[in-house]
Design a protein around this nucleic acid. Structure first.
Lengths: 339, 339
DNA sequence: TTGTAGGCGTTATCAA
DNA sequence: TTGATAACGCCTACAA
C-alpha cells in the first residue's frame, strides 16, 4: 500500500508537507497542495490509521460492550450509540458479552489493547478485577444501562421505579391481586432495581409480597419460559406475570401459549422493555418502555467529554408505562397511561 | 501506560526478551521468563495492539458491514460471525450501513484505514467505485448474504428460489390465486432474486403475473406498510401478501391491523425471513427461514482462508419454508413442510 | 539464551 | 512556506 513517502516522492515534496495538507495542520501554498492531492489520488493513497494512532496516542474509536446482541434492547442501544458517535467523528467497536462475565472481560481486554479512546460498558457481572483496574488506570469509562455500585464511574441509565409503580397500580385497578415477577439476575443493577421496585409497589398498594411469586431469571428467553412454567404450576398460580425484560417476556409467552392458556383471561402478562412487535401479539402486550435513543446519545456525549478531559456526569432518565391489552384492560384504556 | 521498555527495565532484561516471553517466539529460560511475567503483572502491562499491528502489518481484526443493525436478520448474522471469528482469534468490527450506499462506503473507508485484515460485506448498493477499487487492490473480501454481479469476489448466501416455489405451491393448494409480493430493491441481489423467484413460481403454477401485485419496497418497515396499503386499496386486492423480508412483513402487518382486516380471512400474509416472535402473532406467520448461523460461519471461514492466502470459494445454502397459520392453513398442516 | 538496533507509517519539533 | 528528523511501541534480524 502507498504511504506518505510514496506520495511525497511523487509530488516532489517532503513527508511533512504531505502530512500538512492531509490534516491541514499548517499553511501550504495552493500549488503544492494541489500537487500533493493529485499524488494522493493517483496512488489511491489511504492513510494508515494504525500508524497515526501510534503517533498521536488516540484512535478516535470508542468501545461499546453490550449485554447481549440478540436482545433488541441492546441492538437499539448500539444503533443509538453508533449514530451519536459517528456525528462526533468517532468509530465504535461493539463487543457482545452474551451476558457472560468472562466474555465481557475478554472484550474489555481486547478493546484496551486496541487502545480505544474510551469505553462504554453495560456491565454483565459484579465488579471484576479487570474492571476495577481500568477504573484505577483512569481510562475514560462510562457505564450504560447498568451500573456497578462502589465504583466512581459516571452512569447513564433509565430508572423504572416509577413506571413499575404505575404498572402495579394499573394492575390493581384492573382487579388483579396475585401478581408475579420474573426478575433479572440479582448481580445486575437493573435486575435488583426492578425487583425492588416491584416489591415496593406491591406494598404501596397493600398487596402481600409472596416469595413464590418472585422468580429469579437471567434476562434470557429460556429462563422466562422456565419461570413462567413454575409459576403456572403453583397450587395458586398468579393472575398476572410481569417479565423483567423483553426476552423473558418472549419465553413466558412461549410457555403460556404452549399450555393453551388465554391472555389475559387465564393469565395476564406484562413486560419490562417495549418492542415494535408487542403491538401485534394477541393481545397486544402492556409494557414499560425505555428512552433508548436518549440513553445512547447521553452516554456517548458523556464519554467523549471524559476523553477530552472533562468530568462526565451520571444521568438518570425515566422509563414509562405503555398500556395495551394483555392485562385485561378495557377498550377505553388502551394507549392511556403517561406519554 | 507501561510499555515493553518498562517491563524490560523492571525485569532486568532486554525488550527483545520481553517480546519473546510474551509471544513465546523463542526459547527463554524459566527464571527470566518468571521475572518478566512478574514485571508484567506488577506494572499491569497491556500490549499495545496498535504498535504491534504497525510492526506486523496485521490486526487480527475483520470488518463486517451489515445492511441494517435494526433488522433481526443482520443482528443474528452478526452474532454468528462474531462467534466464529472469536474462535479463530479474530475480533470483528461491525459497521451499520443502514441500507445507505454512502454509509456503506464510509465504513469501507474507515475499516480499510484501520487496516482490518479482511472485510465481510453485505453490499447495500450497486458497485461503488470504492468497492471496485478494493477488489482491485486485492484486500481480502467476501460478500455475505448479498452479492454484486460482475465482481470476482467469493459470496456466501442463501438461495430462496426453491423455498419461494414451495410457498407459492402451498398457497395455490390452499386455494389462493391472487398473490401479491412486496419486493426488496432491485439493486440488491436478494431483492432481485426473490422477485424473480416469485414471478417464476407464479408461472410454474399457472398463475398470471400481475404488475399491480408486484410492489417495490426497500426492505424497511415503512415501505412494507405503504406497499400493503396500495395493495389493499386496489379494486381487486390480493388474497395473499408475501413480504420480501421480515421488516416489510412487520410494516404490512401494521397496515392490515390498522384496517381491522382479519388474517387470513380477509387477507393472508407470509414473509421471507423467519423470526422468533412470528410464532406469537395471531395467527402465527408462515415464513421462509434462512440458515443464518451457517451463513456467518462459512463467511468467516472463507475470509480467514483468503487472509491466509487461500482462494476462498462461494457457497450457496438453501432457505426453507416454515408453514404456520397466516395463510389459511388447516390445523393438520401446521409445522408441516420441509424440515 | 540474550541483547542491540532498525524500521513499520505517522505526526510534530526545530531549523532554514 | 518547507524540509529533515525524532519518536510513538513493538517485533525481528543479526550478533554475541
Amino acid at each position: 500500500m502507498a504511504s506518505v513517502k510514496d506520495v511525497a516522492r511523487l509530488a516532489g515534496v517532503s513527508v511533512a508537507t504531505v502530512s500538512r495538507v492531509l490534516n491541514d495542520s499548517a499553511p501550504v501554498t495552493p500549488e503544492t497542495r494541489d500537487r500533493v492531492l493529485a499524488a494522493v489520488a493517483e496512488l489511491g493513497y489511504r492513510p494508515n490509521a494504525v500508524a497515526r494512532s501510534l503517533r498521536t496516542d488516540a484512535t478516535r474509536t470508542i468501545g461499546l460492550i453490550i449485554g447481549d446482541i440478540l436482545n433488541p434492547f441492546f441492538t437499539e442501544l448500539a444503533r443509538a450509540v453508533e449514530d451519536e458517535a459517528r456525528g462526533l467523528g468517532y468509530s465504535v467497536v461493539i463487543g457482545n458479552a452474551d451476558e457472560r462475565p468472562e466474555r465481557q472481560d475478554h472484550y474489555v481486554r481486547t478493546l484496551l489493547e486496541q487502545r480505544v479512546d474510551g469505553l462504554l460498558l453495560c456491565p454483565t457481572a459484579e465488579i471484576t478485577p479487570l474492571v476495577r483496574d481500568m477504573v484505577g488506570d483512569g481510562k475514560p469509562l462510562v457505564f450504560l444501562d447498568r451500573t456497578l455500585p462502589g465504583l466512581d464511574v459516571p452512569t447513564v441509565r433509565a430508572d423504572g421505579t416509577a413506571a413499575i409503580g404505575e404498572l402495579v397500580g394499573h394492575l390493581r385497578r384492573l382487579g388483579h391481586r396475585r401478581i408475579a415477577f420474573i426478575s433479572g439476575p440479582a448481580f445486575l443493577s437493573t435486575g435488583r432495581e426492578r425487583t425492588a421496585a416491584f416489591a415496593a409497589a406491591l406494598r404501596d398498594h397493600g398487596l402481600p409480597v409472596r416469595d413464590e411469586y418472585l422468580e429469579a431469571g437471567d434476562f434470557q428467553a429460556a429462563s422466562g419460559r422456565a419461570s413462567a412454567a413454575r409459576l403456572l404450576d403453583l397450587p395458586e398460580p398468579p393472575e398476572v406475570i410481569v417479565a423483567g425484560d423483553n426476552l423473558m417476556a418472549l419465553g413466558a409467552l412461549d410457555e403460556i401459549r404452549s399450555r393453551g392458556l388465554a391472555i389475559p383471561g387465564e393469565v395476564a402478562l406484562a413486560s419490562y422493555d417495549d418492542l415494535p412487535w408487542f403491538t401485534h401479539v394477541d393481545p397486544p402486550i402492556t409494557a414499560i418502555g425505555q428512552p433508548v435513543q436518549e440513553l445512547g446519545r447521553r452516554a456517548v456525549r458523556g464519554l467523549v467529554e471524559r476523553v477530552g478531559g472533562g468530568a462526565g456526569e451520571s444521568v438518570v432518565l425515566s422509563a414509562r408505562l405503555v398500556v395495551r391489552r394483555s392485562c385485561g384492560e378495557h377498550d377505553s384504556m388502551e394507549g392511556s397511561g403517561p406519554q
